[in-house]
């Protein structure tokens, strides 16, 4: 077993996915298979190999500190499910 049902629930908690029991069962089986398959990367001893987080070796890409036009408020809120006097409205933290 590469991953347990409990771990799947823990990960779903981190990812903020309210999975149904049926989904948790299915995902436990699928993730177990997938992790077995991808787990073979562990075969390699890469102690002194540097990691690559980017295929392109660029550095110091930055922009000058000059403000530009922001979006008009109507565009900001155009897709908002719920807005209230210029704000995005959400149920609060409980």
């Amino acid at each position: 077993m590469a991953i347990s049902r409990e771990e799947v629930l823990h990960v779903a908690g981190l990812a903020w996915l309210a999975l149904t029991d049926e989904e948790v069962d299915r995902l436990t089986g699928e993730l177990d298979k997938i992790l077995d398959a991808v787990g073979i990367v562990a075969e390699l001893d890469l102690a002194d190999v540097p990691p690559t987080s980017h295929p392109l070796d660029l550095v110091n890409v930055w922009d000058e500190d000059v403000p530009r036009e922001s979006l008009p408020l109507e565009d900001v809120l155009a897709n908002a499910p719920e807005a209230e006097n210029g704000h995005f409205r959400v149920p609060t933290w409980r």
Binding site: A15, W16, L17, A18, L19, T20, E23, N79, A80, P81, E82, F88, V90, P91, T92, W93, R94
Partner: peptide, 20 residues
């Protein structure tokens, strides 16, 4: 900020349901 939204009593419930 965009997209459909599911119903939730709290922020977390809303987000978790929206995503599920």
């Amino acid at each position: 900020r965009f997209g459909p939204r599911s119903v939730g009593e709290s922020y977390q419930e809303l987000v978790e349901r929206t995503r599920d």
